[in-house]
Deep mutational scan, measured.
Amino acid sequence: ETKSLTLVLHRDSGSLGFNIIGGRPSVDNHDGSSSEGIFVSKIVDSGPAAKEGGLQIHDRIIEVNGRDLSRATHDQAVEAFKTAKEPIVVQVLRR
């Protein structure tokens, strides 16, 4: 079962304390579909994302501050987090 969660993150020394993997390839599949998503791959101990109620590894990131990342490329997702103003509201899907 997958549930949708909304989390609020604040940077600590400029970092949110997690890494992402995935992202849509720069070239779409011929039918326009994509199974890619942006997923949390690593969480830094005691970083902002590790706090209670924070992110978990394998969370799929859907949205950052209202910006849809469900079909974003990896670079677009990285840029969305880099430029996001605080508080950073992150919507994820968690299995």
Results as ranks from 00 to 15, higher is better:
F39S: 04
G53T: 08
R95T: 12
F39L: 06
T2H: 11
T6I: 06
E1G: 11
K85Y: 05
L55S: 00
K42I: 03
L93Q: 11
D75R: 12
L9K: 03
R95N: 14
I21K: 12
G32L: 11
I62L: 14
E63K: 14
G22S: 13
S46R: 09
P87V: 02
S70P: 01
L93C: 08
K85I: 12
P87Q: 02
S35P: 10
R60N: 06
R95E: 11
K42S: 15
S46P: 08
V44R: 12
V44S: 13
S70L: 09
H58F: 09
K3N: 14
I62Y: 03
K85Q: 12
A72T: 05
V64D: 15
D12Q: 14
I20S: 01
S4A: 04
R71K: 13
R67C: 11
G23V: 06
V64F: 15
G14F: 07
V44F: 15
V8E: 15
E52T: 11
R67L: 13
G22C: 13
S41F: 02
R95D: 09
R60P: 01
D45V: 05
R94F: 01
I88D: 04
K85C: 11
I20W: 08
F18V: 03
F18W: 00
G32R: 12
H58N: 14
K51M: 09
K42Y: 11
P25N: 11
S4T: 14
I43Q: 01
G37H: 04
D12C: 07
I57W: 03
S13F: 08
G32E: 13
H58W: 07
I62G: 01
T2P: 05
S26A: 12
E79D: 15
S41R: 04
S15Y: 12
K51R: 11
S4E: 09
R67P: 02
V8N: 06
I57G: 03
R67G: 04
G22H: 15
S35N: 14
E86H: 05
N65D: 05
T2W: 09
V44W: 12
G66D: 04
S26L: 10
V27C: 12
K85A: 08
G53A: 08
D28A: 09
R95C: 07
S15A: 09
G54V: 07
P87T: 02
P25S: 13
G37N: 02
G37C: 03
R11Y: 04
I43P: 02
V44E: 13
R11A: 03
I21F: 06
F39M: 05
S41I: 03
K85L: 07
E52N: 12
V89Y: 08
V90D: 07
Q91M: 05
D31T: 10
R67D: 05
L9D: 03
H74Q: 11
A84Q: 03
R71W: 06
A49C: 10
D31E: 13
S13K: 09
S26Q: 10
G32F: 15
